[in-house]
């Protein structure tokens, strides 16, 4: 880990200008659960940290009106424990409460959560130059391509990188058509969450579309009746404290037994939070039976391209979507 400077501004505009004057190699830091971890592994090597946790009033959780709004510094746990979210948008609460551990969720903020980096083991282990990794060192190669790829993605991969986008909450937000509020050196803007993430292509080291110095200030989720009929179904190697092998964020608007509109996004299987429009379309107007649910799951995975050890994610993912649909439908009835 190399030495770095540290500032702790108290307003968002001050943070943006602190970042701008620090120049390249600066990073915002919120809960630090991703950034410090990667700094200790020598993967992130910032020279300046702009700690945004002292910014007053940037942690509000708003549930009135026609949208939900979570400010960037709201802790994961606070959003996960919000009564309205639990009741009306279980997909959001579950995506948070099934992530990481209680301790991490206490520290981590929903803004930082969107920008966590992959758990690809070669990426995390390679700072001493053992394992080539294009994401860490552009052009060095990808050890995962012909390596131990059980955990790797089956969607959105390239010849340069197959690393999974690890986060759970972003998958739920993608399913729910969330927007981000962003403040940067050249003012503020909004961005659909799906547009935050890049595919690896041949530049896997570029993961997000934020410009240097841009700060996420809030996450906005439009309200929808599908919220009540929703779930985040996460299948992992143990019952808690593990990233997804396959997960599905599902929300259903039902008309009696028929699906009028489905929101489906996939986690643990793709290089970015992955919307599944084929499956959504397949369901529209259908009566949701277990068979129809499994068909939709299969449709969601029809375009998958697995590697050597992760082929099971295709079948597991399809079944995860199917189970999630049935859970969501059940909830929409109650």
């Amino acid at each position: 880990m190399q030495p770095f400077t540290y500032t702790r501004p108290t307003t968002a505009p001050d943070a943006v200008s602190a970042f701008a004057s620090a120049g390249a190699d600066a990073r915002y830091i919120a809960g630090g659960t991703t950034l410090y971890d990667l700094m200790k592994l020598n993967i992130e090597q910032p020279r300046h940290l702009v700690d945004i946790t002292a910014i007053a009033g940037l942690d509000k959780i708003e549930t009135d009106g026609d949208r939900l709004r979570f400010e960037a510094l709201a802790p994961m746990n606070a959003v996960a424990a919000n009564d309205v979210i639990i009741r009306d948008y279980p997909v959001l609460a579950e995506a948070l409460s099934k992530a990481a551990s209680q301790q991490l969720r206490n520290m981590a903020r929903v803004g930082g959560n969107l920008l966590q980096r992959t758990r690809c083991m070669y990426f995390r282990n390679g700072a001493d130059g053992v394992y080539p990794c294009n994401k860490r060192e552009p052009g060095s190669g990808c050890a995962a391509l012909r390596g131990l790829d059980r955990g790797q993605a089956v969607f959105g991969t390239s010849d340069a990188c197959t690393a999974v986008s690890p986060g759970d909450f972003p998958v739920a937000l993608v399913a729910m058509d969330a927007q981000l509020e962003i403040l940067g050196p050249s003012g503020s803007r909004t961005l659909p969450i799906g547009d935050l993430y890049r595919l690896p292509g041949d530049t896997p080291h570029l993961e997000f579309t934020l410009a240097p110095g841009e700060m996420i200030t809030a996450i906005v989720v439009p309200k929808t009746p599908a919220g009540r009929g929703s779930t985040y179904h996460k299948i992992r190697d143990r019952e808690s404290y593990a990233f997804a092998l396959a997960s599905a964020a599902v929300a259903l608007e039902m008309d009696g037994d028929q699906v009028s509109r489905a929101h489906i996004a996939l986690g643990g299987v793709a290089t970015k939070p992955w919307r599944a429009p084929e499956a959504e379309q397949k369901l529209a107007g259908q009566r949701l039976t277990p068979e129809v649910a499994l068909d939709a799951g299969r449709a969601a995975f029809s375009g998958a391209s697995p590697g050597k050890h992760n082929g099971f994610k295709v079948e597991l993912g399809a079944r995860t979507v199917a189970d999630a649909l049935l859970i969501a439908a059940e909830r929409s009835r109650s």
Partner: peptide
């Protein structure tokens, strides 16, 4: 997890060694 091409242990922390 050991990648035979490199030796050493890949999942060498409590998050990845399940």
């Amino acid at each position: 997890e050991i990648d035979r091409r490199y030796g050493g242990y890949l999942n060498n922390d409590l998050a990845d060694y399940v």
